[in-house]
Design a protein around this nucleic acid. Structure first.
Lengths: 234, 234
DNA sequence: ACAAAAGTGTTTGAGTTACACCCATGT
DNA sequence: ACATGGGTGTAACTCAAACACTTTTGT
């Protein structure tokens, strides 16, 4: 094994996604936007820095704690999808650190990019701190963060075929068609209804509830919940 | 997008693997071992730190430059397989930094773990700086680095099914059976000779050379080289 | 009664796996 | 001549894809 160590900065970036109104939406943090313009409010950054040094925390915990200021949720999925090293600070970040600011620019930055999934029903309505934007609204986004969004979507596309992560994007109870729509949206292709049901039946992720949709003007669908006993993650 | 940035250390760890004598071997850096005992010789670390701040370099370049001090090679494969954040320095590393050493322990460490592949024929013989050890010799390894070795082997096992990375472990010219043996060693299972040849024939990675093995006491095998035109990586 | 989504099996093609014998060379 | 690994095709099986009609509810 070869090993080298040096000083630097560590940046943890999260793309937070939800599934709502038949589309994927990404969380835009209005605080971050204003924070980049003006240069006050370092509490948020300081917060994480403090947490991490206190004891060893997983990415899940760190991202999770940070996000609680923005949205409410019960379950959350966090996975690292990107690591890059830059010799210069990304343009969209103003690093305001207490001291050593004069030689800060001599140190590289490691950027850890995460893909975060939350269920739509568990989020507060939009408020002044953050808003949800369809991922298709590409001109909404800071172009510097854009590559991470792409990376997260690519990751999600691949991952959803392998592991039961669709459930992080769904409410507790859901119908098979809702589940299928999540798969279709994430993978960007239509699926055959019968083949889809055969496939997930094999996987045994689902517990059927003795409950059906109400007040729909068609045959009501049976509802299911996710049985994660075999898939404890984080 | 959510973002947080803080000070820390960046550690780049590489597991360097080669295929030799029908087994995978890992490079053990004797310098690192002595470096951990005594606490001189920070040139190596300083070297990389300087390089990275000078201009933006890829992991490939950084690891590659660092390894040139240990072994010789022409082609090399580098891929990041792990990122973890620790609140404390790994035990096996003594961080000796010029100044700020008093508050250094307040900052977390990001560890970037890489899987590196080199061809056996391209390496210098073992010398005092480094030696090659079979991966099966598990008690040879520093237990702190061990998880990265596992991660690298798992990665390799999965990756070799998808991309033509076996060629990084082989000399320029090789027979189909040598190629098959690499696959068998990496995936830890026997393969059917005919099925294997059918499969790689489809993939069109190979250019047949008008050349055969010499001085073997059996029917000499045809030699091939890798045609990487469709797979430019790094 | 009608509109709208729910629900349910079978057939076909593609790809993967299993398997046995003759060939060219060095000693 | 014999020992050693090189080299080749076919049949069975498994998995994924394509496809159409009946059912239940609200209006």
């Amino acid at each position: 094994m070869e090993c080298a160590i040096f000083r630097g900065f560590i940046s943890i970036e999260s793309v937070v996604l939800r599934y709502d109104k038949n589309e994927l939406q990404v969380l835009v943090d209005e605080r971050a936007v204003t924070q980049n313009r003006g240069n006050s409010e370092r509490e948020n950054n300081a917060f994480i820095a403090a947490q991490i040094t206190e004891q060893e925390k997983s990415l899940h915990e760190m991202v999770s704690e940070n996000l609680k200021e923005l949205i409410s949720f019960e379950k959350i999925y966090v996975e690292q999808v990107q690591t890059r090293i830059q010799s210069q600070y990304p343009k969209h970040i103003e690093i305001m650190y207490d001291n050593h600011s004069e030689n800060a620019s001599k140190h590289p930055v490691v950027i850890i990019g995460c893909c975060v999934l939350v269920a739509s029903s568990e989020n507060k309505a939009d408020h002044e701190k953050a808003k949800w934007v369809p991922v298709s609204d590409s001109n909404e986004f800071d172009t510097v963060l854009h590559p991470l969004l792409q990376e997260a979507l690519t990751f999600l596309n691949r991952k959803i075929e392998q592991d039961p992560i669709a459930f992080y994007l769904l409410p507790e109870k859901f119908s098979l068609n809702e589940l299928q729509q999540v798969y279709e949206t994430v993978t960007c292709r239509r699926l055959d209804k019968r083949n889809f049901r055969k496939k997930i039946a094999q996987l045994q992720y689902l517990t059927p509830l003795n409950e059906k949709q109400k007040n729909v003007r068609h045959k009501p669908a049976s509802l299911y919940c996710f049985n994660g006993s075999a898939f404890e993650r984080n």
